Computed example of a mutant assay.
Amino acid sequence: MPPGKGEAAERRAADFLLTKKVRILARNWRCRMGEIDLIADDGGILVFVEVRYRAKGRFGGAADSITAAKQARLVAAAQLYLATLPRMPPCRFDAILLDGDDAPRWLKNIIEL
C-alpha cells in the first residue's frame, strides 16, 4: 500500500465509528506481537478493531485479507493490551472493511475465543 493510504483508511474507519457513537481510545497501539489499528469503547465493550483497505477487488476484497495468521497476531496483541488494564472488561474483535470508495462495512465479533 502506498505511504499514507493506511493512515487515511484508519482515519476513515475511526470517523465512521465516531458517527456510530463509538469512542476511540487508541490508534495504532503497538507491542512486540504486532499492532492493533484501533481500540475503542462501544457502550462499555472494549473493541479491538482491524482496519482493512483494498483499492480494487482483483485479489479479493478487504475481508479476504484477514487471514488466520493476522487473527492470531491480533489476539496476541490484544492479550498484551488487556494485561495493562486493572480489570478485564468485556471485549470483542471487529473489522472495518474499506473496499475502494464504497461505504465502510463494520463486521462485529470477527474472532470467537
Rank of each mutant, 00 (worst) to 15 (best):
R11S: 14
R12L: 13
A13R: 02
A14S: 14
D15T: 11
R27C: 06
R30C: 10
C31D: 13
R32F: 01
G34A: 00
E35I: 03
I36R: 01
L38S: 01
L38V: 04
L38G: 02
A40H: 09
A40L: 07
D42W: 07
V47K: 00
E50Y: 03
V51W: 08
V51K: 05
R54Q: 15
R54H: 10
K56D: 13
K56E: 14
G57Y: 11
G57W: 11
R58H: 14
R58C: 10
F59D: 14
G60C: 08
G61F: 05
A63D: 13
S65C: 11
S65W: 07
I66D: 05
A68K: 12
A69W: 03
A69G: 10
A69D: 10
K70G: 10
R73L: 06
L74F: 00
L74H: 01
A78T: 08
Q79Y: 07
Q79T: 07
Y81R: 08
A83I: 02
L85F: 05
P86D: 11
R87E: 13
M88T: 14
F93M: 03
A95I: 06
A95W: 00
L98D: 03
D102E: 15
A103W: 04
A103Q: 12
P104L: 06
W106D: 02
L107S: 04
